[in-house]
Design a protein around this nucleic acid. Structure first.
Lengths: 359, 359
DNA sequence: TCAGTTAGTGAATCTGGCG
DNA sequence: GCGCCAGATTCACTAACTG
């Protein structure tokens, strides 16, 4: 009994969240209201409106109200997340420090803060400050000791020309055709996020089929990116107009074919091959000699897949670490066998065994 | 009756701050402990050990203890600031959200958050997260209605090739000759900041002769930058060794007339565009087919920007080299996409993305 | 002297499965 | 939950060394 995927639920964010089952979402992406001190509406925990204020005491009242609201929806999101789940929250300096503090206080474990660098930010018209050219995203796991979060490290590295993806991402604002307009041609939603941003978030931190919950769905950028990438979404949005716009928008999205959703996998995820299996497959034989990369050290292979060097025996990893006096060693890349052309790492034998495995 | 400028006071930050007079500093720059919470040792892939920040001054029992410490020194700093004064605090995701929240709670008025993008950050050795490639600075005025803060808008604009200075700044780490070493050649301080960063901070937010207070003076980067730029400094530092190092360092600084200072960075090389960004920008989609120049070979694009050709996958460069049996290949010019007019190299898509990037 | 190679290092909350 | 252990994992830059 879980949540129905690929739906938008119209209603108050906190009320709707309370109705969702425990541990039912793989990821939360949240773009909460930033509206502190901007003359916009500020909501109390019960969603009544706080009158605009400008003196110091009421300012504190406003922060307290924003904090209570934030704590309420984040608490529910944490409950709804699976143990291996994670959350992304985007914000600006008006609210992101309060969001980050409350995340930490609720037991979320911050994994990274990520900066969205805007290529085309709005200038600071009064010339009174630096151009506000970025927003901040916080990526956090459900808890410090929580089950392992999803991070498609190799896919991110591939998407960044084989360099580790950094914590600063550069994207243009959502403009042009992508920006939804109302019937008058005005922008339909004030803070529509670029789908490219969600593309990277989902590709980095979800698997195909995962359920992504967005408690401030707006015009459905999260849903559009999820559908395109073969993920499922649950959106919560209070305004009926936005719900309708989002439904139409998501329906227009062409999902990527499942075979194209394959991304570069990690070596950790590859099937484990015990070294003994190399012997069982006949690719090496007991008594064969293995060499370190430059050949000056040698060890004999024994029938059970251990190595012997003088009186000492142990796994390929232990023995590799031992001869180097290193704390650890990957025996697959350290030990080599001799061929007519010189020394070849035994990792190629592992690859041969893996290629014969089913699946 | 004010504070004596161009001095370093040895002692506990909060105790010393309490002895400073009200409204005596024009600016505070603070690089407080980040409250890192490290596990055990971290080994690089080559098994060398990362020299982590495990100093006693960075250890706090809990978030509550860190918050109390932060509130205490920020409260004193606010008292010591002149009414038109401002504060900068630098931190990472471990502490910056708590610092920002407390700044707001104390009545400081945030002007910008600024991101220091590191050109050469330490990689994430275990491939577990995004490379932590930035730190965050908060710039805040003493209060919302406080007397006008200093912002040298035109100096900043001039320093940025006549474009408004943005909230993301790019600098390398403090290394090489600038990095202070002890007698053994090891780094003298674990977290020395680059002087270029302080240069920009002071040039942006102080006037010549202003008094800059740094309650976590360390090896005196703030003092060195202040002296160089004709500002005055007051430093507080607990460790006697750091105080001595800072004194010697600042004495070596040659003050320079501001008009002689080179502040404009050299024009950067063309920004690198990873192929994955072409997909994120929607210029190609997962499942699209790319062709070699004469069209006789084809490969499918995957969601992470890798190419698939039969069972083989890899980057556009790797796969281009592979199909030509060449040692290397520029995938941007080798691979083409099909349009009504025939085949077009994907390099034109890179040019489109580049045209949107900031200089 | 110069070019090429090797070694070292920087604020880091840095693995995962099985018993 | 803890311990064990297989085995996966790095970018930009500086400085020292080699030939």
């Amino acid at each position: 009994m879980g949540v129905t995927p690929d739906t938008i639920i119209q209603g108050d964010c906190i009320e709707v969240l309370k109705g969702l089952p425990d541990r039912s979402a793989d990821l939360v992406f949240a773009d909460p209201p930033y509206n502190l001190q901007l003359g916009g509406d500020l909501l109390r925990p019960d969603n009544s409106r706080v009158d605009a204020v400008d003196d110091h005491w009421d300012q504190f009242e406003s922060f307290a109200a924003y904090d209570a609201f934030t704590r309420a929806w984040l608490t529910e999101c944490r409950r709804v997340l699976k143990d291996g789940g994670a959350i992304w929250v985007i914000g600006s300096y008006h609210n992101i420090f309060r969001v980050g503090t409350i995340l930490q206080d609720l037991g979320f474990w911050i994994l990274n803060d990520v900066v969205w660098r805007k290529t085309n930010p709005m200038p600071n018209f009064k010339g009174a400050r630096f151009t506000n050219a970025h927003e901040t995203l916080i990526w956090a796991a459900k808890g410090r000791g929580a089950k392992r979060y999803t991070f498609n490290y190799d896919a991110m590295k591939m998407a960044n020309d084989e360099l580790q993806m950094r914590s600063d991402w550069t994207f243009p604002l959502c403009t042009g055709e992508e920006r939804l307009k109302d019937e008058t041609g005005a922008k339909a939603h004030p803070t529509q996020k670029p789908e490219a941003l969600l593309h990277r978030v989902l590709l980095a931190s979800t698997k195909p089929g995962d359920i992504v919950l967005d408690p401030f769905f707006g015009t459905g950028t999260t849903g559009a990116a999820a559908r395109r990438l073969g993920r499922r979404y649950v959106g919560i949005e209070r305004e009926a107009e936005y719900v309708e716009l989002a439904r139409e928008r998501i329906a227009r999205v062409q999902p990527v074919a499942p075979e194209d959703l394959q991304v570069t996998g990690s070596r950790r995820a590859e099937p484990r091959v015990p070294f003994g299996q190399i012997l069982e497959a006949g690719l090496l034989r007991p008594g064969d000699v293995l060499y370190c990369p430059r050949g000056e050290r040698a060890a004999r292979v024994r029938a059970d897949g251990s190595l012997a060097l003088g009186d000492l025996t142990g796994s390929i990893h232990k023995m590799g670490a031992m001869v180097q006096s290193a704390p650890a060693c990957n025996g697959w890349t350290y030990w080599h066998f001799r061929t007519g052309k010189g020394l070849t790492p035994i990792d190629v034998l592992r690859a041969q065994v893996r290629s014969r495995l089913p699946g």
